[in-house]
Design a protein around this nucleic acid. Structure first.
Lengths: 218, 218
DNA sequence: AGCGAATGGATTGTCGACAATATAGTTATT
DNA sequence: AATAACTATATTGTCGACAATCCATTCGCT
């Protein structure tokens, strides 16, 4: 094997990924109970690996487990979504600040290229790729922070939860044209190594998203 | 039983708490390997519950696990500590902002009382209680944010890690007199319901701590 | 009938054994 | 002597069975 980061994949990993996907995409309904035996037969593995998968999901805040009672998929509430965006504003703001400090010039150039391709899609109204592009944009900045805790919390934790809300509440992707302008300004600030401005713009960007969602859902 | 939030305690819980304590307090050394069988005999439980405990510790970022190889206690590095404080600055800043918005008047009064008792200890140079007081102060503001994600991330996650660094690197508690002044100003901002200022002061407070640590450790 | 205790069924928590994988030590080959 | 393949051992991953707990229903008492 010539794979670079050679990481063994265990059965519990696969079950975890599968189950997480099923929950996020709504194939397992929000608020529903997770029966260990049921999942065990469904995925063709032992209860032990199902339990491990559920444990990991609990730490992503995708399920809630009570001793001797069982695990339920989290319920989706407007209040929960708002709280999620508050945390996101805080963490991604810091990510943008650190990205302005820590990204290499090459990485920033790549980011600009991504923005350009995103721009083409906006012009062509390719709404399908828009959400993926938005996720990718935020993802690069998060990774660009070079802060492992930050990356882990956002990528392994919050983002799947947010996606779950997006999919199941049928939320539209980012507000199309305005969001693109905001992205552009954030990249500019990062390119200028202006940490303060990068953080502020990212926070506003996410705050606007939150307000947009609140307005639509209430 | 008249207990209010009656929560069953499972064996895995106890093992998790015990092991976490042992790691944080340094009885299990940083960077050392965690043998499942060894811990199993040590705590008198089966490997299954040890595995569950280790899984939870992994999600607290207290241990790192690699498939088919095993789990190691995280290594303590200056870089890691700095990254931790960056996240803490971000999250606790937001917590202070939300606390200024969401704490009840009664809770704010309690916070002032805590600050007063803390002040007495500072005068008497009771350094032992100082750290506990500091932790308690930050804890109340975090809980006062009323944001479950924020609370969980900080209380169940980061704080044990930070305490691990404190204990094992022999870091002194907060800078005594100046820290108290900063606490006072934060409470004042919260009491005035000044979200903006509360966040800014909390962020500075943590930033100063970070700089203080950096100066001492390098 | 109404309320509390007891019982039965189902689910989760825990355990010990087996399978799969990694690590260290040994042997064989160049 | 150095390297590669192999073997042996130890550790982790997975499994099925048993124990403890919860939940719903039934039974008994007032």
């Amino acid at each position: 094997m010539i794979a670079f980061t050679e990481q063994a994949i265990t059965g519990a990993d696969k079950t975890f990924f599968q189950l997480r996907s099923d929950i996020v995409e709504g194939e397992v309904k929000a608020g529903s109970k997770l029966s260990e035996m049921e999942l065990s037969t469904k995925y063709g593995v032992s209860r032990a690996v199902v339990r491990e998968a559920i444990n990991r999901l609990e730490n992503c805040h995708l399920v809630e487990r009570k001793p001797n009672i069982g695990a339920r998929v989290v319920a989706l509430t407007l209040e929960g979504l708002i709280q999620l965006y508050q945390v996101r504003e805080s963490l991604e703001g810091m990510a943008a600040r650190l990205a302005a400090k820590n990204m290499t010039d090459a990485e920033i150039e790549d980011l600009k290229l991504l923005l350009n391709s995103h721009f083409q899609e906006v012009k062509g109204n390719q709404t399908y790729y828009q959400e993926a592009g938005d996720v990718d944009f935020h993802y690069r900045i998060i990774v660009g922070s070079k802060n492992d805790h930050l990356i882990s919390m956002l990528v392994n934790g919050l983002y799947h939860l947010i996606r779950m809300y997006r999919v199941q509440l049928g939320m539209a992707g980012p507000r199309v044209s305005t969001a693109f302008e905001e992205h552009k300004n954030i990249v500019q600030a990062i390119s200028n190594r202006d940490e303060e401005l990068a953080e502020m713009l990212m926070r506003r960007h996410i705050l606007y998203s939150k307000q947009n969602i609140e307005a639509r859902l209430r």
